[in-house]
């Protein structure tokens, strides 16, 4: 069986909100599915259904071949859950948290202590193991959360917005851990609001909007769906920008944009073959390119194309909140 998660037509309603409106998802064994979408798109609800915390109103889902509603205890033996909602106990130490969960997973006392020690070491928390979790930094807490969800070596790991609210360094640490877990053979379902995160970690991406999966594919496929690529060229000699702009305009048939500060010339292209033509013309003109690339559209552009709105309205929300204070 190559799919560890298979969900069909999941629906869930809370009052007036249709949180899931017919969601289909599959996750292949050993891969990372990134579930990308803005707040309220239904990502967390989908994770809670697949983690047996919520019963769907309609539709069905199997995790490792077990039905999430009828065989929920077996599903729970196969999964690990980390995220904004499933948390560790702040009042206990890191070691106590891990030992407690290991004991709940039927490890003997000795096995539980050994597993806790092993995981603390792996997540660079050995020194903090004896301290209460409430004294941990945000990054340390997330790492402990992640360690807690790995105790029984789950086949499927749900990471619900694992880096929301973390600084870039802590985020990088969590990313490294996710890559390690996948290298060990686990399959991951990761929800995120960050396009960059889905791009960095996910093999395939499902884009959620208003309880629907509006697009699904690899990062490259999604970018291809958003349409045209961009040619970007920068001359080694800044004073030859004008000559370069003329060449680019000539070959692409578009009016190039020029960044005054860096001398970067960009233009949308329809046919990737233009790239080799550009190389020939630059060569003939004796122009040395310091930078020459075909750029895929960013995931934000993809999101805009697919949904008609930007993926991250969070930036403007923060401003409004800030101005209230």
């Amino acid at each position: 069986m190559s799919d560890v998660i298979r969900a069909e037509g999941l629906r869930k309603r809370f009052g007036d909100t249709q949180a899931l409106d017919g969601v289909d998802l599959t996750v292949r064994r050993g891969t990372v599915l990134g579930v990308l979408g803005p707040n309220g798109a239904g990502k967390t609800t989908a994770v809670r259904v697949l983690a047996t915390l919520l019963k769907p109103d309609a539709g069905r889902a199997e995790v490792c071949g077990y039905d999430v509603v009828r065989d929920s205890v077996r599903v729970r033996a196969k999964i690990g859950l980390t995220g904004q909602y499933a948390s560790v106990d702040e009042e206990l130490t890191g070691t106590e948290n891990l030992v407690m969960i290991a004991r709940l997973l039927d490890f003997s006392r000795r096995e539980a202590r050994a597993r806790a020690k092993e995981l603390l070491a792996r997540f660079s928390l050995t020194d903090a193991g004896g301290r209460a979790v409430k004294t941990y930094s945000g990054g340390m807490r997330r790492r402990l959360d992640l360690a807690a969800s790995l105790i029984n070596r789950p086949e499927v790991i749900y990471l619900d917005e694992p880096t929301t609210g973390l600084d870039p360094r802590a985020r990088g640490e969590v990313w490294d851990t996710v890559r390690e877990v996948v290298a060990d053979g686990a399959s991951v379902l990761l929800t995120t609001q960050y396009l960059e995160e889905a791009d960095a970690l996910a093999d395939r991406i499902a884009v959620f909007d208003h309880g629907h999966v509006i697009a699904e594919g690899t990062s490259a496929e999604l970018k291809a769906r958003a349409g045209r690529q961009t040619l970007a060229v920068r001359a080694a000699d800044l004073y030859r920008v004008e000559q370069l702009t003329t060449i680019v305009a000539d070959l692409t048939g578009a009016r190039p944009e020029v960044q005054a500060a860096t001398g970067l010339v960009t233009a949308p292209i329809g046919d990737p073959a233009v790239l080799s033509a550009v190389v020939r013309r630059l060569d003939e003109a004796g122009l040395v390119a310091a930078e020459l690339a075909l750029r895929m559209p960013s995931l934000d552009e993809v999101f805009l194309t697919l949904t008609g709105h930007h993926a991250e309205p969070a930036a403007t929300e923060t401003v409004t909140e800030g101005s209230l204070v």
Partner: peptide, 13 residues
């Protein structure tokens, strides 16, 4: 409120 019980609910207990 803190999500500790959700962790328990995701375990096979």
């Amino acid at each position: 409120q803190k999500g500790v019980f959700d962790r328990f609910r995701s375990l096979p207990i």
